[in-house]
């Protein structure tokens, strides 16, 4: 009992972070509020690479690292499309990935949303009109929101998620 009470008042064991970015924190808090009201506490994202150059993957991965740590705001990247609310798709859709992209979308339970991340996913980028790609993600999936950039930085990804929340709210 005594221990429980002292634990409540003890300082946290974690160290104070030295790299707090006020703008990012503010974005995160706004996003958390939106997620709480729309999705009920957590937003599950399935990342889907349909032909990117892997820089967008690095930035998405970065969202989970100590500088950003978006799980604090209720955002989780899940291992299966069956657990996802949102599919984040990166890169132009290659012919070789088209089948897998469709299967991943079909495996995601409704309601589901698609966010295209990066210039290539938005409209095919430099690969537009070539033999190896079908084009941007919207050639094959109903895209709800497009985040341009090559690749978009973590803050831009957060703003993209916020915009997605806004568009979902407006639709309801």
């Amino acid at each position: 009992m005594n221990k429980a009470i002292t634990n409540i008042f003890k300082k946290p064991v974690t160290e104070e972070v030295t790299f707090k970015d006020e703008e990012f924190e503010a974005l995160g808090i706004r996003l958390k509020k939106d997620i709480d009201t729309i999705f009920g506490r957590s937003l599950a994202i399935r990342e889907l690479d349909s032909g990117s150059d892997n820089a967008a993957e690095i930035e998405l991965n970065n969202l989970g690292t100590p500088h950003y740590d978006v799980e604090r705001f209720g955002v989780t990247f899940v291992a299966s499309p069956r657990h996802a609310d949102v599919i984040v798709i990166t890169g132009a859709v290659t012919r070789n990935m088209a089948g897998a992209v469709k299967k991943t979308y079909d495996a995601t339970p409704s309601p589901k949303y698609v966010m295209a991340v990066g210039d290539d996913a938005c409209d095919g980028g430099i690969y537009k009109g070539t033999y190896a790609v079908l084009g941007g993600a919207d050639m094959i999936l109903p895209v709800d929101i497009k985040i341009p950039g090559n690749p978009p930085e973590p803050k831009e990804l957060m703003k993209g998620l916020l915009a997605l929340m806004r568009s979902i709210r407006n639709r309801r």
């Binding site: 690479d49 032909g51 990117s52 150059d53 890169g91 132009a92 290659t94 012919r95 070789n96 990935m97 897998a100 430099i126 690969y127 070539t130 033999y131 190896a132 790609v133």
Partner: peptide
């Protein structure tokens, strides 16, 4: 090769300057 984007073909007929962008991709 799921991500085959046809980079080598894409470079064909481009000026040497345009190709820097392709090399970066």
């Amino acid at each position: 090769f799921y991500k085959h984007r046809g980079i080598e073909k894409l470079a064909e007929g481009k000026t040497p300057e345009e190709c820097v962008r392709i090399a970066e991709s």
